[in-house]
Design a protein around this nucleic acid. Structure first.
Lengths: 350, 350
DNA sequence: TTGTATGCGTTATCAA
DNA sequence: TTGATAACGCATACAA
């Protein structure tokens, strides 16, 4: 096996007896070079199988074509749909995505962002997470950043962001159920861990409460199930186990005729639990989810739920970020995406 | 706003009146430096909020702590479970993953690998895809590479790899159904596009055929549904639509008492289609999947299926790769992971 | 149009 | 133990 020497612009320059400057100019299609020499350089480059070293280029021009993406957990579909949307656009525009899983941990967020900055990322996308932003604002202020579906506690702080309105969506859900004739509507939600606070989850619950008020339905605290888990609850199996151990249908004061859920996983698990107890959905009780997972159309009964534009969150988010990166003017834009109710078979008139 | 100058090792060196060499040695905990100076350097570094530039370091020492990962499609759960497994280990060992979606396209594979190499990745992981490897072997031979769940056409070619046996698993599935008393077993599979060839899919189908033989059941070509789609079929909705338009249950010669499927999506879609026609599962026909998606325990009826160790594929794969990167000796290892049948409610005795 | 020379931030060699 | 300096591969300001 022959010793394979690294081919760089100097290899090409030497081979042709020209300067590296000319090689660089030729290969990057800058103007300052003659057509003839340019052609010879490009020929030699392909002949030698030259590959531009992105790392060196990045060091020189301070552009990496890397976008850092912060995800709070590796949850199926919800986050991955967002990522899929981003990936298509990023690839198309020759950017590379790198991910970090922050586990809803502020310390980890700081650590991950620091790592990204040391990699000279061109921009940052933060998906979901807590309502807190102060601990990372000093980084964000110096780096093009877009927030996706992250609701900040402090409304005065504003960052470029793409989001949908969890609260308004759940208000709509309550109204939808009310229109079906349900006057006694329960709610099932889970905070996936005790020490974290996820604004989206709070907002969905508040939407339920406000929805009752707006529809002139009375709130009954017995019919609100909202617990934190001490162990991390995220996937369907976890959710099922948690509800199985913590939610006692018989504890509902006056069994609700409809139960609104924080998300589809909870709805799907709840339906399974109800059916195991011989409670029929929607005959005995209507169940409504939130997220519109792909699978929710294939459960039995198919799930009525609220669809938020997951993939579009990613697409719009990355486009916004790339606009900011390539043209500083579009900063501080906030984009609200719509939600809508997908009516299926898990809800019925009463 | 003050002009924020980049803090580098020279900033620290200048501040203390020492050389950059000493700063580097101190910060990287190399030996050649006095304890006293080292302490002062580290203090100054934190004081100035110094962040090491990974790009410059990578250029110098030719190590990026980046692992490139090739995925053939953004399919939920199957690939994402693998990724989740990898991500945990990679993060733990301070590596960063970058992904490329090859869309089962050889040209794109070459392009993506080239991009990775230009980023000076430390290693490459290739998940799934076609049975062909020649077009990228020249890259792989010079870069630590691990194949995950990619079955090569040519058995003579050997790369470090982690996999499970699709064919053997489907043979087991046929035997399982046979033991339930099913003698007329159908099969439903889809090749997601016409011009691509995915070895795993071929192997699963072959497992069905071989399984019949081994169990002394006769093969009836009328009961094998295996079509290519001209449009890309991957997610559950696609699969449902495709089957709805192409699979006519009544065309089965002598309706099978059990139908084995290529994957869980197909099984779930098939069950929905059967139920829409009033055919009961498992009373009228048993249906068996492959993959054991999380959701498959929550369908109604819950799905009997074959579980392959998705997350473990990722964990074992990345560990193997990191071993190769850090210690060239473990090369050319092939690791076979077991599969097992998860018995649920979609199959019954006949 | 082309070449010379410098620097991006780091590590590493060699000399002091 | 410490410092001066070259080198990684590239782009660019400036000179020719």
């Amino acid at each position: 096996m022959e010793m394979e020497k690294n081919i760089n612009i100097k290899s090409i320059a030497d081979r042709l007896g020209v300067s590296t400057a000319s090689v660089s100019n030729a290969l990057n299609d800058k103007g300052r070079i003659g057509e003839d020499l340019k052609k010879r350089i490009i020929e030699t480059a392909t002949e030698l199988n030259y590959k531009q070293n992105i790392i060196a280029k990045t060091l020189k021009i301070k552009k990496s074509w890397i976008i850092g993406v912060l995800i709070p957990e590796m949850l199926f579909e919800y986050f991955f749909q967002i990522i899929i949307g981003m990936e298509e656009i990023a690839t198309e525009k020759d950017y590379t995505l790198v991910f970090a899983n922050t586990h809803y941990d502020s310390e980890k967020e700081i650590k991950d962002i620091n790592k990204f900055l040391r990699m000279l990322i061109d921009g940052l996308i933060i998906i979901g997470g807590s309502g807190e932003i102060n601990h990372i604002s000093k980084f964000i202020d110096n780096t093009p950043t877009v927030l996706i579906a992250r609701h900040l506690n402090n409304d005065n702080i504003s960052y470029p962001s793409v989001f949908y309105d969890d609260r308004a969506a759940q208000i709509n859900a309550v109204s939808y159920l009310n229109n079906l004739g349900h006057k006694n509507i329960g709610y099932v939600g889970i905070m996936p861990a005790e020490n974290i606070q996820i604004t989206n989850i709070e907002l969905r619950k508040r939407g339920y409460m406000d929805g009752l008020k707006i529809n002139n339905l009375k709130f009954n605290s017995q019919n609100l199930f909202f617990k934190s888990s001490h162990e991390y609850v995220s996937n369907l199996d976890n959710v099922y186990d948690f509800l199985k151990n913590n939610l006692f249908i018989e504890n509902f004061q006056q069994m609700p005729t409809a139960i609104l859920c924080q998300n589809d996983y909870i709805a799907i698990a709840l339906i399974k639990i109800l059916m195991e107890k011989g409670i029929r959905v929607p005959n005995d009780v209507s169940v409504m989810g939130f997220d519109n997972l792909v699978i929710s159309n294939y459960t039995n009964p198919a799930l009525t739920t609220t669809k938020q534009p997951k993939k579009e969150l990613g697409v719009v988010g990355i486009n916004l970020l790339l606009d900011i990166i390539e043209n500083k003017s579009v900063n501080r834009k906030k984009i609200l995406l719509p939600t809508n109710i997908i009516e299926r078979a898990s809800t019925a008139k009463v």
